[in-house]
Design a protein around this nucleic acid. Structure first.
Lengths: 220, 220
DNA sequence: CGACTTGTTGACACTGCTCAAGATACGTGG
DNA sequence: CCACGTATCTTGAGCAGTGTCAACAAGTCG
C-alpha cells in the first residue's frame, strides 16, 4: 500500500542532528527507500510509525476543501516527522525526491516513555521543535511574496551547510503550496531576486547565494 | 515590572477544560489580575511561569523587523500559554481585556515531570495543543480575507458556547494582526459577512451568528 | 459635554492571481 | 545517441483582492 521497498541493511550512516530518540531511531528503525512522489502516509491514517529522513526530502501536506494543497512542512536529513498529536495522522506525507527514511513504531517510543523519563523528554522536545517550526511558518505566511521566497531559499542555503551552490529538492509548485502563493509568483520572485543580485541561478533547481545580506534583509 | 496586582484569594472558579496539570495549576498557582493592555511577559524574558486564563483574554505576539505586530495566538478561559520551548519566551503576552490568570512556576512542573510521568505526559500534551493551534493558524493565513475572518468569528462563536450572540474581546486591529490583514480589510469583511446574512452586528464587538452554514462554508 | 479611541467607508494604488503562450529540462523508446 | 513527448519553469497581459491614505462615524471615558 505504501509503495515501500526495503533497502539493503548495509550502511546506516544517518545524518543525525538530534540526540537521544533520533539516535535510538537509527538502531531500532528500519531504513526504507521511498521513490520520488510516493506516499509515505495519508491524512487520517493510523499514526503507526515515526519517521526520520536519512537522505532526500519529504513534504507533509493537507488538501483543503477548495481542493488546494497546502504544504505543512518540508523535512530534510536528520528531521523527524509523523510524530502526531493523537492516534491519527493529521496530514499526508510524500517523498519529494528519492529518499531513505528510518521508520520506527510509534508505540515503541510511547510505551518506552512510560518507563524512561529521558525518552519522554525527547518526545516532548521533538514536538517542541515542530511547534517552533509551525510558528515560524505562520509568521512567514503573513509576509510579502519576496520575503517568503527569500526565507525559503535562505533556509535551504543554511541547511545545505552554506555551500557555494545548492540544489532545491522541491519544485516551484511545492514552494508555492508551502508559501501560499502561485507557481507563477514564485517563479517571478526568484527571477527578481536574481535580478537584484541576491542569488544566481545555475539551473531552475541549482542556486547560488551571491548576496547573503540582501537575502537576509528580505527575510525577517 | 509586570504591572500585576494580586487578586482577593476568594473564588477560584476557573473554567478548566483540560485535566491534570491544568487542574493542578488551580491548586498550586496564584490567581492574578491583569488590566486591559498590560504586559504579562516580554519577548526574550526568562520563561519563569506558565499561565492559564481564568477569565478574560490574552494575546501573544511578536514584533517583526519592519515594525509590524504579528499576533501568534489568542487565549481564552481554560487555555494555557507561556509554555515555551526553551528557557526564554519567544513572544510577548498582553491582556486583551481585564483578565484573571493563574500563574505557576514553570520549574515546579518541569521538575515535577522528572518524577511524575503523568505530569510529563501533560506537559507534552499541552505542547501538542499548541502545535495543533499553530498549524491551524498557518493554514488560515494561506486563505482569502473572507475565509480568515469567518474562521475567527466561528472560533469565537464556538468558544462562547454557541450563544445567540457573543462579545469579541479583541479589537479589529488585534484580529487584523492575527490574520495578517489590515484593519480596514477586517472591517470591510465583517460588513460583507453581515450583508451576506451570515452574521448580524449588534455593535462592533457584539456579534450574532445568523447563518452558521454560510460561515462554515467560508471557513475550511 | 468634549476629547480620545475605535471602527467604518470611499477612492485609488499595488501586489499577487488568472489565463495563456512559450521555453527549458527530463525521461523514454527507437 | 537522438527524437519525441511530457513535465517543469518562465514570461506576458489583464484583472481581482487587499493595502494605503483620508475622511468621517460611533462608542467610551473623563
Amino acid at each position: 500500500m505504501h509503495a515501500i521497498s526495503s533497502v539493503p541493511a548495509a550502511k546506516t550512516t544517518a545524518f543525525f542532528n538530534q540526540a537521544g530518540v533520533s539516535r535510538c531511531m537509527g538502531s531500532h528503525g528500519a531504513p526504507m527507500l521511498y521513490a520520488r512522489n510516493t506516499e509515505i502516509y495519508g491524512d487520517g491514517e493510523e499514526a503507526e510509525f515515526i519517521y526520520q529522513v536519512v537522505t532526500g526530502a519529504v513534504r507533509t501536506y493537507k488538501i483543503l476543501n477548495d481542493g488546494r494543497r497546502q504544504i505543512v512542512g518540508f523535512y530534510l536529513p536528520g528531521d523527524v516527522f509523523g510524530l502526531e498529536f493523537g492516534e491519527e495522522h493529521e496530514s499526508s506525507a510524500e517523498a519529494v525526491s528519492n529518499s531513505t527514511i528510518t521508520v520506527v513504531k510509534r508505540s515503541f517510543f510511547v510505551s518506552l516513555a512510560d518507563r524512561d523519563l529521558e525518552v519522554a523528554r525527547q518526545l516532548w522536545s521533538m514536538t517542541k521543535s515542530g511547534l517552533r517550526r509551525a510558528q515560524k511558518h505562520a509568521l512567514l505566511l503573513a509576509q510579502t511574496a519576496q520575503e517568503r521566497v527569500a526565507a525559503v531559499l535562505l533556509e535551504m542555503f543554511e541547511r545545505s551547510g552554506k555551500l557555494s551552490s545548492f540544489e532545491l529538492p522541491m519544485s516551484r509548485q511545492d514552494i508555492a503550496d508551502y508559501l501560499g502563493l502561485t507557481i507563477e509568483t514564485v517563479s517571478r520572485t526568484v527571477t527578481a531576486l536574481e535580478a537584484k543580485g541576491a542569488i544566481s541561478l545555475q539551473s531552475a533547481r541549482r542556486i547560488a547565494v551571491t548576496n547573503h545580506q540582501a537575502l537576509r534583509r528580505l527575510d525577517s
